[in-house]
Design a protein around this nucleic acid. Structure first.
Lengths: 325, 325
DNA sequence: TTGTAAGCGTTATCAT
DNA sequence: ATGATAACGCTTACAA
C-alpha cells in the first residue's frame, strides 16, 4: 500500500498538501489539488487508518458485546448494528461473552486498548464494575445495565399483557406460561405483564433457559403437571417452538385445543408447523436505534433521550384462533 | 489510559526497559523488572494496540466477510471463528456483503487500510478481481474462491449421495429434490450427488434461494406439479422446513407418506415438527479449522494442506422412517 | 543491563 | 497557498 509520502513525492508537493486534499481542510490551489488527485489515483492510495487512529485517538471501530451470536435473537441485532455502523464509516468488532464476567472483562480491555470509539452491550452484569469506570460512549441493548447508561429495550411488560389479552380474547380460559431466565430483567417484565392480566386464569407456570433442549424439558414438565390448559405464553420463540413440538408429540391440536404465543418475532416462528403467533419486538429497529444513538454519543451530539422503550406488536399466525365475533 | 512513558517515569527507567519487560525481550535486571511490574500494576497500564500496530504493521484483527449473519447457517461459523481467534489474541471484524460485489469491495479496502492480518471469506465472487491482487493471508470458507486460495468446505457430493441412499434404503421409490441457488458451487455439488444416485427414481426437482419465503413457494410448486413422491431432499435445512410446513398444510403425513431430508444440521432442524432428519456439515469444526489455518498462514507456519474437504454425516431424526430390516 | 533515538503513517501547527 | 515539523504510543537498533 502506498503511503502519503509516496503520494506527495509523486505529485511534487508536501505531505501536508496531500493531507489537506484528503481531508478537504485548509487551502489548496486547484493546480495542486489536481496533481494530488492524479497521484492518489495512480498509486491507488488509501490512507492508513492505524496511523490516523494513533494521532486522532479514534478508530472508527465499535465493539459489539453479546452473549452468543448463535442464539437466534442476536444475528438480526448484529446485522442492524453492522448496517448502520457501516453506513457511517465504522466497522464492528464482534465479541461473544457467554455471559461470563471474565470474558467480558477480557474483551473490555482488548477493545479499549485498540481504541474502539464506542460499545454496544447486551449483557446482564449490571453490577459489573468495569462499565462504571470505563469512560467510553456506550449503549445497552435489550438489557438495562444501570441508570446513567443509555439503553434501548422493548416494552416487555406491555408484551406480556398483550399476550394474555390475546389468549383470553380468543377464548382461552386456562392459561399457562413458561418464563425465561430469572436474571434477565427485560425478560422478567414479560412474565410480570402476563401474570398481571392472566390473574386467576393462570393454572401453570415454569421457567426455562433459552436453549431448545431446556425448553423442551420445561415443556414436558408443564404438560405433565399442569395439563389441561388451553392457552400458553412462552417467554421467547425458541421456547414456543419447543412447546409446539411437545404438543404435536402428545397429539394436542394447535390451536384448536391449545393456543400458543411466543415472543420476539424471529424468523424461526415462520418456520414452525403451524406458524407461530408471537409478540414481535422491533429487533432490527432496536439495533438501528442503539447504533445511531451510539454514533451521536461518539460525535458528541448528545441530544435525544437517554432510554428508549420501544412498543411491541402482536403478529397473528396460526397457533392462535381467528378472533371470535 | 496510561502510556508507556508514564510507566517508565513511575518506575524510574526508560521506555525501552518497560517495553522489554512487556515483551519479555532482551535483558532486564530483576530489580528493574520488579519496578516496572509494580508501576504497570499501579497505573493499570495496558499497551496501546494502535501504536503497536503502526510499528509492527500487524493489528491482531481478522476480517470476516460473509453474505448475511442473519442466514442461520452463518452464526455458528462466526462463533467458531471468533472463539479461536480470541483464544489466540485476535479480534474479528464482522462484514455483511449480501453477496454484493460492491459492498465486498468497500469492505476489502476498509479492512486493508486498518491493516487486518487476514481474511476469512464466504463469498461466491470467485471472479472478483480484488482477491487476486490482495496480498493478505486468507482462507475461503464453505465456498471455493479460486485455486491458489486456501479453502475449507464439506463434501457436498457425498452428502447428496448419502441423502439419496438413505431415502432409498428407507423404502422411498419416488424421489424429489429442491436445489439451492445455482451460483453456489458447493451447494450444487449436493444436487449432483443426489441426482447421481437417485437416477431413474427422481420424479421432480426445482430450485430455490435460501430464504424461507422462496422455499415455501418452491415447495408449493413442487407439490403442485410433481406429486406424488415419497422422499425429498432439500438443499438446506431452511428449505426442508418449508417442505415440512407445506406438507402438513396438505395433510401429508411425514414420514409415513413422505420422508424428508435436509442439509446443514443447524439448530432449526431440531425445532421443527417432526424434528428434521438431515445431512450435517461439521459447521463449527469448519470455522475452527479455517481460522486455525488462517492463523498459521499469518504466522508463516505454512504447513498443512491447502484445501480441506470435510466429511458429512447423517443425523436421523423423525422425518425419515426407522430403517427397515 | 540500560538508555537514546529513529521510525511506523498520519494530522495539525506554525512559519513562510 | 504551501512546506517543515512535532506529536500520537510503541518497538527496536545501536550506543553506552
Amino acid at each position: 500500500m502506498a503511503t502519503i509520502k509516496q503520494v506527495a513525492k509523486h505529485a511534487n508537493v508536501s505531505v501536508a498538501t496531500v493531507s489537506r486534499v484528503m481531508n478537504k481542510s485548509g487551502y489548496v490551489s486547484e493546480e495542486a489539488k489536481e496533481a494530488v488527485e492524479k497521484a492518489i489515483a495512480e498509486l491507488n492510495y488509501a490512507p492508513n487508518r492505524v496511523a490516523r487512529s494513533l494521532y486522532k485517538k479514534s478508530s472508527n471501530l465499535i465493539g459489539l458485546i453479546m452473549p452468543d451470536i448463535t442464539n437466534p435473537f442476536f444475528p438480526q441485532l448484529a446485522r442492524a448494528i453492522e448496517d448502520v455502523a457501516n453506513q457511517h464509516g465504522y466497522q464492528v468488532v464482534l465479541c461473544n461473552t457467554d455471559e461470563q464476567l471474565e470474558k467480558e472483562q477480557t474483551y473490555l480491555v482488548a477493545l479499549q486498548t485498540m481504541h474502539v470509539d464506542g460499545l454496544i452491550i447486551t449483557t446482564n452484569h449490571s453490577h459489573n464494575p468495569n462499565y462504571e469506570t470505563l469512560d467510553l460512549p456506550m449503549v445497552a441493548l435489550d438489557r438495562i445495565v444501570k441508570a446513567g447508561i443509555d439503553a434501548v429495550v422493548s416494552d416487555g411488560y406491555e408484551g406480556g399483557k398483550l399476550a394474555a389479552d390475546t389468549l383470553l380474547q380468543h377464548g382461552a380460559t386456562r392459561l399457562a406460561h413458561i418464563a425465561g431466565p430469572d436474571h434477565l430483567k427485560t425478560v422478567k417484565r414479560r412474565t410480570e405483564g402476563f401474570v398481571e392480566v392472566a390473574g386467576e386464569k393462570l393454572v401453570g407456570m415454569t421457567e426455562s433457559t433459552f436453549t431448545f433442549k431446556d425448553a423442551l424439558k420445561a415443556s414436558q414438565e408443564l404438560f405433565d403437571h399442569a395439563w389441561p390448559f388451553d392457552g400458553i405464553f412462552a417467554a421467547n420463540d425458541v421456547i414456543a417452538a419447543a412447546v409446539l413440538q411437545e404438543a404435536v408429540r402428545r397429539d394436542i391440536r394447535v390451536p384448536e385445543e391449545l393456543q400458543v404465543i411466543g415472543y420476539d418475532g424471529i424468523e424461526l416462528g415462520e418456520m414452525t408447523s403451524p406458524p407461530l403467533t408471537t409478540i414481535v419486538q422491533p429487533i432490527y429497529e432496536m439495533g438501528r436505534l442503539a447504533t445511531e444513538r451510539l454514533l451521536d454519543l461518539i460525535e458528541k451530539k448528545d441530544t435525544r433521550p437517554r432510554e428508549m422503550l420501544l412498543p411491541v406488536t402482536l403478529l397473528e399466525r396460526h397457533t392462535t384462533k381467528r378472533k371470535e365475533r
